[in-house]
Write a protein that binds this DNA or RNA. Structure first.
Lengths: 340, 340
DNA sequence: CTGAAAGCGCTTACAG
DNA sequence: CTGAAAGCGCTTACAG
């Protein structure tokens, strides 16, 4: 086996043909294992040997040119590492793309409009099959108009205009599931620490919480629901109020809020779940899995959003007439809920 | 402006030429704004208009073919979302690649050897300029031999054989910096909760800790150093032992250990930093930034590792003779250290 | 069974 | 100032 160094001239099909003493046509046929063409066993052997000897690798770019179809799919992300969420979307999209013989071109724009524009332009020049436009937290967007030049699907976001197909988490279902976890454990007085920032998560989860209560015949009480900063500080600051409500359980807007609440509770000598049952949201592994005690929560389906995004783009999945596909938020049970 | 739909035939330079009534040569010249060629103002205007009218986008793939140089750089990652770390590497590599007109092809292999092999093969077919082989935590590896077919640099890992250039965090410097934070605050009895798993982080940070003590004229005491599981559970379980040593401060192997320790301390009615000064490692934002009180720590330079990886690959940065470049781990001060 | 030739979308000497 | 032609690395009818 011969090794190629970085800048060395690439070995092409022509050279293989020369080495094997056949035409490039023949090389192409055996290299691609073309069915329906008969190649003499001797010729085949010779090209295979030549390929090996020369260390030939087909040039996928040239192939793309003649085939006329692009292997690329673009993924526009507004964040890739600031939270694990965006990463999961990328991972899902990548796995799905790869599985179907496509290659993901990811651009991290940090939400910068100009960077987005340039990334789209670049993707278009590489003749992507389509573009996934994603946001790290579920929200509405007005996507760049240049996206109209190619097929695009919105991932973890949606446009009010409804110009594009979108795939988003089922927030209502998630909120319901969070509350149900508590209801099924026998709780009746369940608080909800919602977020201060307007978002589909805020609206949807509240709606899910109401529906779960209603289905269980529990009356909704406004005093059990309030908004807090959606992080540890917000949870920490909510302890006093929570305790005052006499609730035995609480749904937190996310795992970080739950973490802050844990701290505040512990400082008061209270413990989870004995004194308070807690359910989070997001399933942010590094937090939820390692709190004391580990936190029961509802997971956001980022990986699946990514997968669904490319499947839809490739026409593999059906899309409802309204162009909106919702992915379920599954419940993750750990040990922060006391069964009454 | 005309819009193209997904499957529609692409508009090519030939069509633009036709529309503008010039040759493709001329189109190429004006589209690329070729210097040194004079184009009649009228011709130029006509092609620009045609480009606009037709919505022409150059085919970067075809261009690549004739230019003979590849815009692609491969990044092999063993994880992309299980921790924020890998994501930062990807982000750094992506930013640097983009900045220099290159495109990052990232493959997430989850460390699976077969997947790695296929990804490399794919990258080679797309004629990548080179490949970055990365791991989410710093360690030694024996990279796939097929990597020898292209330029490769190891990111956040290294091979004992020394076949490849590598870029890794300066663990010794990081360990020293952690200890120094405490020493400068006046602490003399400083514990170190190291990790049970053998790794450059374990060896290097311990070494750095020793050097910092030595430089400050503090004698190293074996009883102040022990190993624990490198996560919340390990930190939680270390509280008793830590308290028994009479240390006034502690360096934790990472932020998760610190988080577990916080919990255990709080359960004993103790508080940070009044009763114990704590320094973490990793600067895992979601944890370190939001503990009560926020945790002083030492950051792992993942973003920079990614940047350096592509810069080295592109020949933009010098590499020491031993092929090993170390990136500094900066100290991040928050409020978990009491000044004596 | 095998190969010459045209063509994918571009760029670049080379001639006018 | 402008264009015909060759060529980048491949594939695919079409002839032998």
């Amino acid at each position: 086996m011969r090794m190629e160094v970085g800048g060395e001239p690439r070995v092409t099909m022509k050279q293989v043909a020369l080495e094997a003493g056949v035409s490039v046509t023949t090389v192409s046929h055996v290299v691609n294992n073309k069915r329906g063409v008969r190649i003499g066993p001797d010729a085949r052997r010779r090209v295979l040997e030549a390929v090996d000897r020369l260390g030939y690798r087909t040039n996928a770019l040239a192939k793309t040119l003649v085939k006329g179809s692009s292997p690329f799919i673009g993924l526009l992300s507004d964040s890739i590492a600031s939270t694990p969420f965006a990463g999961q979307i990328v991972r899902g999209a990548q796995d799905a793309a790869w599985q179907h013989g496509h290659i993901l071109l990811v651009a991290n724009t940090e939400g910068n409009a100009e960077a987005e524009e340039r990334a789209i332009s670049m993707m278009l020049q590489y003749k992507v099959r389509g573009i996934l436009f994603s946001r790290w937290y579920h929200r509405d967007v007005t996507p760049p108009t240049s996206l109209r030049e190619t097929s695009t699907v919105l991932v973890n976001c949606y446009d009010d205009a409804g110009d594009h197909t979108c795939v988003v988490p089922d927030e209502v279902g998630g909120g319901r599931r969070a509350a149900q976890t508590l209801i099924r454990a026998g709780h009746r007085r369940i608080a909800l620490i919602n977020t201060t920032s307007p978002s589909p998560a805020r609206t949807g989860r509240l709606e899910g919480y109401r529906r779960a209560l209603e289905a269980a015949g529990i009356v909704f009480r406004q005093e059990l629901v309030w908004d807090a900063q959606p992080d540890q500080e917000g949870g920490y600051a909510s302890a006093e109020r929570l305790l005052a409500t006499g609730a035995t359980a609480v749904c937190c807007h996310n795992d970080r809020v739950a973490m802050g609440l844990y701290d505040a509770l512990r400082e008061r000598g209270l413990s989870v779940p004995t004194d308070m049952s807690v359910v989070g949201f997001d399933n942010q592994e590094v937090i939820a899995g390692h709190l004391h005690p580990p936190l029961s929560t509802v997971a956001l389906p980022h990986y699946k959003l990514g997968v669904a995004g490319v499947r839809i783009l490739l026409g593999l999945d059906d899309v409802p007439a309204d162009g909106r596909v919702e992915i379920e938020c599954p419940s993750v049970v750990r040990s922060s809920v006391l069964t009454l």
